[in-house]
């Protein structure tokens, strides 16, 4: 049993609303923790939520005509523009409510995209939306590659991972670049709220999504979304994989609230990254030297993050 899951209450799962706004019958793969993350996000944001969805796995699995898994208003326009479409929805509602043509009420506007739709092709639209200050929640479901098109590498694919466009070859050992740091990029826009989350920590995730929606202005939540198909792990290990990502420091859970950093799970000692890498097919080819290289990088990045926590919380 996860030692962190139940730090709130062992029965916390039962206190969560049983209402779903992303309903079953969706066509995500077995053990898709991205669908799980989406379920938790939709559940948290509830009925008064409008979703602008980028092209990607979650779009395809949730809306094959004539069916929809959505119980909230939802729109898909293209791959790279979820943040811009959400900007338009938010502004449209604002104008119509101000002009008395829609009753005033709190309606959350959410944009969602995968790591490709966020850190690659959608980065410009996201940056624009954050800079303009639209009151919306942007959720990045990061499964660390273009899974929908067949596991091609993105700028969010971690170093060393083998994908169909960064295959582990005889000369090049898979992805040779480090994962683009989207939370830091969004935090640099000085928006009121940035958080990382993972569906292996559902209560932490839901708290963060709620906070993101409650805060006035743009909020960004970056969710590590385990993809058993693309990571080549057995589906039942999806939750375990997320836990290992956090416990090894590969993907720290933290928040940046009005410039203040907070580590949500601050481990006194990180597990060796090998415990995260070794059961994933995408990392199977890694040599001890490459694993050590990753270990060093993780240690450095984690230290950097801890220093930011200290620096931004000094009085």
């Amino acid at each position: 049993m996860d030692e962190y899951l139940d730090r709130l209450n062992i029965y916390a799962s039962r206190l969560v609303s049983q209402k779903e706004y992303f309903v079953p019958g969706h066509r995500a793969c077995q053990g898709c923790a991205e669908a799980l993350a989406l379920r938790l996000v939709a559940k948290t944001l509830g009925r008064n939520n409008i979703v602008a969805c980028a092209t990607g796995c979650m779009e395809i699995v949730s809306s094959p005509l004539p069916l929809t898994s959505w119980k909230v208003p939802w729109i898909h326009v293209a791959f790279e523009n979820a943040a811009a479409v959400a900007s338009g929805i938010e502004s449209g509602l604002k104008a119509l409510m101000r002009k008395g043509r829609l009753p005033r009420q709190k309606i959350n506007v959410m944009a969602m995209a995968g790591d490709g739709g966020t850190s690659d092709i959608g980065l410009q639209a996201l940056s624009g939306a954050l800079e303009r200050g639209h009151n919306m929640v942007y959720v990045c479901f990061d499964n660390e590659a273009y899974m929908n098109t067949g596991i091609q590498r993105s700028s969010s694919t971690p170093f060393g991972a083998s994908t169909t466009t960064s295959p582990a070859g005889k000369v090049v050992p898979g992805q040779v670049t480090w994962k683009k740091n989207m939370p830091e990029i969004t935090a640099a826009h000085n928006i009121p709220y940035v958080a990382t989350a993972c569906s292996s920590y559902p209560f932490d995730l839901m708290e963060k999504v709620k906070k993101a929606a409650d805060i006035e202005g743009p909020a960004y939540v970056h969710i590590l979304s385990i993809c058993p198909t693309g990571w080549r792990i057995p589906p039942q290990l999806a939750i375990h994989a997320g836990r290992m990502a956090i416990e090894t420091g590969m993907f720290p859970l933290y928040e940046v609230e009005r410039g203040k950093y907070r580590l949500n799970i601050d481990l006194p000692e990180l597990r060796p990254v090998e415990e995260y890498l070794r059961f994933q097919g995408r990392f199977r080819h890694l040599t001890p030297e490459l694993i050590e290289k990753i270990q060093q990088r993780v240690r450095e990045e984690y230290e950097k993050l801890k220093r930011k926590v200290e620096m931004t919380n000094e009085d």
């Binding site: 811009a84 479409v85 900007s87 338009g88 119509l96």
Partner: peptide, 25 residues
Amino acid sequence: DAEFIPVESEHSAMSVCAGSSAAGA
């Protein structure tokens, strides 16, 4: 009485328009 949205590209201009028209504006 309107929202003027100075977007970062024409691609986003038309995308914002998609969202706002879908919202009924």
